[in-house]
Design a protein around this nucleic acid. Structure first.
Length: 391
DNA sequence: CCTCCACCGGAAAGCCGGGTCA
DNA sequence: TGACCCGGCTTTCCGGTGGAGG
């Protein structure tokens, strides 16, 4: 990275960089570290702008935030201007600043996912064509197949140089953890096995240093709460459980209302001992719950998208199956945390009367079963050729 | 071999709420 | 105040589609 960026010191534009690596392998922190060191060395000639594309996910918001970091004052409004005006304003600002601008786009794959390759092209073009060509871009992604999704004009501009960040192994993680612990805790306050366990769990999770550090932090907190002098493996195990539930709880809490209702629909269906739920059933449940909660339901097309979102969030798994005559649909399964999911949903004030909704579905489902048995009788009768019954 | 089900998922468009600007 | 801009959410429309059953 330093090699690529040091061309700034020789007064020439650095090439665009693309960094790959799983989460928690240090892509972002190393980038920020290198940039800060560069800024120390050459405070007058470098300007960097770090943006996470999960938050700033449109060319518009990215260009605006870049412009803001170029010239501290923000005379560009957060919305309202047409894109090309922001564009020209930005290039004139870059020109005026007379510095090299490095735009760091973290989770750049999110930008492309949401807006398509074009959005990235706009930004790359803005960078390439900035007066005096003083802008370069560092893209950070954990999606190794990222470039395959780009068309060639974007690819060639972005992928001028790439660096792969391999995952940390357990002993590297231990090296990361140890010095961090040393400053805050007394000597030997953490059992050697506990430290090793943290590193091992982190390594299992694709060498994720962030995870290992979080694990250690919570383990220490738990030990303090227990009034223990020493952090043991037991604390680490408990810490892991805590982390997992925290993530799930937060995921569910931040879900949009309709998505929550869709999960309820899934839970209601699975409580009726359905192992393979299909989209149609979930949608029917969803509509029932909406009715009970006096919320207007969204269309089935939309629910289909919400189900895809849920799959992305890891709350459900779906497989597309064809049932021949009986259509083509998704088989939907809740993940193994169903009970917890239900609990968090019930605690959600937005979803106050979930219990009532489930009940109402169950009664409705009862009726549906009854109707079905009637239908069965009729069909059997038809088979036997009794015309009276058929009518 | 053909049909036809019950959806999938892309495209386009509308609406809303946030904003700017003359 | 009306003409715009953008993003997010949603609906409408519609062309697929895998495979059981005729």
């Amino acid at each position: 990275m330093v090699e690529a960026l040091s061309s700034i010191m020789r007064n020439s534009r650095p090439s665009n960089l693309l960094l790959y690596g799983k989460t928690g392998t240090g892509k972002s922190s190393i980038t920020q570290y290198v940039m800060s060191k560069l800024a120390e060395k050459a405070p007058d000639s470098i300007l960097s702008c770090y943006l996470n594309c999960q938050t700033f996910d449109s060319p518009y918001s990215i260009l605006i935030n870049v412009a803001k970091s170029v010239s501290g004052n923000d005379n560009i409004p957060p919305s309202g201007w047409p894109l090309d005006r922001v564009y020209t304003e930005l290039s004139s600002k870059i020109e005026k600043s007379k510095k090299y601008l490095v735009i760091i786009l973290d989770e750049i794959d999110k930008l492309v996912e949401k807006n398509g390759g074009d959005s990235l092209y706009v930004i790359l073009k803005a960078a390439d064509e900035s007066k005096g060509a003083k802008t370069s871009i560092i893209g950070i992604t954990n999606d190794t197949s990222f470039t395959e999704k780009l068309d060639s004009r974007v690819k060639s501009r972005l992928n001028q140089e790439s660096i792969v960040f391999p995952p940390y192994n357990a002993s590297e993680l231990k090296d990361i953890l140890e010095p961090r612990v040393k400053g805050i805790l007394a000597e030997n306050a953490i059992e050697e096995p506990a430290l090793n366990l943290c590193a091992a769990i982190g390594a299992q999770e694709h060498g994720d240093a962030r995870k290992a550090i979080d694990l250690m932090r919570i383990a220490i907190e738990l030990a303090i709460r227990d009034d223990k002098e020493i952090v043991t493996t037991e604390h680490v195990y408990r810490s892991r459980d805590r982390l997992e539930t925290d993530v799930l709880k937060e995921t569910i809490r931040t879900l949009p209302t309709h998505t929550k209702i869709v999960i309820m629909g899934c839970i209601a269906a699975s409580e009726m001992n359905k192992t393979n739920m299909i989209t149609g059933e979930i949608y029917a449940n969803y509509k029932d719950i909406c009715h009970d909660m006096k919320i207007p339901p969204v269309s089935s097309r939309r629910v289909s998208d919400l189900l895809s979102d849920l799959e992305d969030a890891g709350l459900i798994t779906t497989t597309i199956r064809s049932l021949g005559r009986y259509g083509r649909t998704r088989y939907i399964q809740l993940n193994e945390k169903e009970k917890e999911m239900k609990k968090y949903l019930m605690e959600d004030e937005e979803m106050g009367n979930f219990e009532a909704s489930t009940k109402s579905i169950q009664t409705r489902f009862g009726n549906y079963e009854a109707n079905n048995t009637n239908l069965d009788k009729i069909l059997t009768a038809a088979d036997e050729g009794s015309e009276a019954e058929i009518s």
